[in-house]
Simulated assay, not measured.
Amino acid sequence: MPKAFTPKVITANALIEGDVVYFSETNDWVRDLAQAELLTDEAVADARLIEASAQQDKIVGAYLTDMAAGDNGPQPVHFREDFRATGPSNYFHGKQAAH
């Protein structure tokens, strides 16, 4: 039996700055995970990944990653994506300064 599809978002790194970015419903790249499009259908997720990956003038390394629906938008289910969403943990700066 195939594994059930889990919700996902599309993430990548901004081409110039290297920041972690997420694909939104409006086909834009956003730096706030809460603004990312949460994909709940596998076929739609695959099609959206193709669209996102075509924006090579803005991003590198686009991929789908597991997320859960949260009160404030998508929430990481794996520590790697939690780390990417909040940035380096050695001191508060960048994304962490806002938390």
Results as ranks from 00 to 15, higher is better:
Met1Arg: 06
Lys3Ala: 13
Ala4Asp: 09
Phe5Asn: 02
Phe5Met: 05
Pro7Cys: 08
Pro7Asn: 12
Pro7Glu: 04
Lys8His: 05
Ile10Ala: 02
Ile10Met: 05
Ala12Cys: 13
Asn13Thr: 14
Asn13Cys: 13
Ala14Glu: 09
Ala14Asn: 10
Ala14Trp: 03
Leu15Trp: 00
Glu17Cys: 11
Glu17Leu: 12
Gly18Asn: 04
Val20Ile: 10
Val20Asp: 08
Val20Tyr: 07
Tyr22Lys: 04
Tyr22Pro: 03
Phe23His: 02
Phe23Asp: 01
Thr26Asn: 13
Asn27Val: 08
Asn27His: 06
Asp28Trp: 08
Val30Arg: 01
Arg31Tyr: 12
Arg31Ser: 13
Asp32Met: 04
Leu33Ile: 10
Leu33Asp: 05
Ala34Pro: 07
Ala34Arg: 13
Gln35Tyr: 06
Glu37His: 03
Glu37Trp: 03
Leu38Pro: 02
Leu38Trp: 02
Leu38His: 03
Leu39Pro: 02
Thr40Glu: 02
Thr40Gly: 04
Thr40Cys: 02
Asp41Phe: 12
Glu42Ile: 05
Val44Met: 08
Ala45His: 02
Asp46Val: 09
Ala47Tyr: 06
Ala47His: 10
Arg48Tyr: 04
Arg48Lys: 08
Arg48Pro: 02
Leu49Lys: 01
Ile50Ser: 15
Ile50His: 11
Glu51Arg: 14
Glu51Gly: 07
Glu51Lys: 11
Glu51Pro: 05
Ala52Phe: 05
Ser53Val: 08
Ser53Asp: 15
Ser53Lys: 12
Ser53Gln: 11
Gln55Phe: 05
Asp57Ala: 15
Asp57Met: 07
Ile59Pro: 06
Ile59Thr: 07
Val60Ile: 11
Gly61Pro: 06
Gly61Phe: 07
Ala62Phe: 04
Tyr63Asn: 05
Leu64Gly: 03
Leu64Lys: 00
Leu64Phe: 01
Thr65Glu: 05
Thr65Val: 13
Asp66Ala: 15
Ala68Arg: 09
Ala69Tyr: 00
Ala69Arg: 03
Gly70Arg: 03
Gly70Lys: 05
Asp71Phe: 12
Asp71His: 10
His78Gly: 15
His78Met: 12
His78Trp: 10
Glu81Phe: 13
Asp82Glu: 13
Asp82Leu: 12
Phe83Cys: 14
Arg84Ile: 08
Ala85Tyr: 03
Thr86Trp: 08
Pro88Gln: 11
Pro88Asn: 12
Asn90His: 12
Asn90Pro: 06
Tyr91Thr: 11
Phe92Met: 11
Gly94Ala: 14
Lys95Arg: 12
Gln96Asp: 07
Gln96Cys: 10
Ala97Met: 10
Ala97Gly: 11
Ala97Asp: 11
His99Lys: 15
